[in-house]
Amino acid sequence: MTAVPVSKIELKPTRRRVETLQILGLIGPTALYLLLFFVFPLLIVFVYSFLKRGVYGQLVWEFNVLNYVRVFDTLYLSILWRSFVLALLNTLVCLVLAYPFAYYIARVENARTRNLLLVLIMVPFWTNFLIRTYAWRVILANDGPINLILLNTGLISQPLQLIFTNFAVVVGLVYGYLPFMVLPLYAAIERIDFSLMEAASDLYANGWQAFRKVLFPLSMPGVIAGSILVFIPSLGAFVTPDLLGGAKTVMIGNLIQGQFLTSRDWPFGSAFSVLLMLMVLGATLIYFRKGGRTL
C-alpha cells in the first residue's frame, strides 16, 4: 500500500477554508455575545470582589482580600451554613418523595397513563415561579387554610407560626424543585429491567433486600442527577426565602441581594457571588465526575 501522511487525510485547502468560514458563521455570533454579556461580567464580579466599598457606597479601587475574610464572620458563616443545610434538606425531602413516586410511574403498564402522570407533575411547574411560591404564602399564613382547619377542628387554640420559618422555606423549595428530582429518577428507573428484581427474589432476597441491593444501586445515576439538579438551584435560591422566610431564614441569595440593593456594598456582594458560583461549580464537577451527562 502507499503510505499516506496523516495530514493528507484532511481536507483540501479550499474546502478547509470554506469549513472555517462556516464554523465562524455558526459559532461566532454566540461566542462574541457570551464573551461580552457573560464572560466579561463574570470577570467584573471577580475583580469587584477584591475591591473596597467607600464611605458613601462608592467603589474604591484598592486591591484587598478583606471581603473574603469577612465571610468568616459568624453572621455570614451561619448564613452559608443555613443555605447549605436547607438546600440539603430540600434535596433529601425531594428524594424521599420522588423515589417511590417515580418508581410507581415507571411500572405503570399503559404508556398513555404513564405519560399522563408525567405531564401532571410538569403542569404546575410550567406556571410562574413567583405565583407558585405566593400560593404557599397564602396557605401557610396565620389566617390561611391550614391554620383555619386546625383551629376549627380544635387541634390548636392559637394559629401556628408556619409562614416566615425555615419550615416554610423548605416547603417552598420542595414545591419548586420536586420535578427536577422526579424526571431523572423516572428516566433511570424506567430503564431498569424489572426481571432483575425477580432474579433477586429467586435468589432469596426479600422485597427490601431486592430494593437495597439491586434496584437502588441501578437507579444511582438518576439519584445523583436528581440530587444535583435540586441542590444547585436551591443553594442559590432567592425568591423562596424572600417570600416565605423571615429575618431568621436569610440564605446566600438574599444576602447577595441585600448587599447590592440595600447596603450597596457591591464588593462584598461580589465576593459572596463568587463563593456561591464556586460552590455550585464544585457540585457540578462532582456530578460530571460521577459520570453524569445530561444537565
Partner: peptide, 11 residues
C-alpha cells in the same frame, strides 16, 4: 448552571 442571583448581579 450558574444560580440566577449570580447571573443577575454580574449583569
Amino acid at each position: 448552571i450558574i444560580p440566577d442571583i449570580a447571573m443577575a448581579v454580574m449583569l
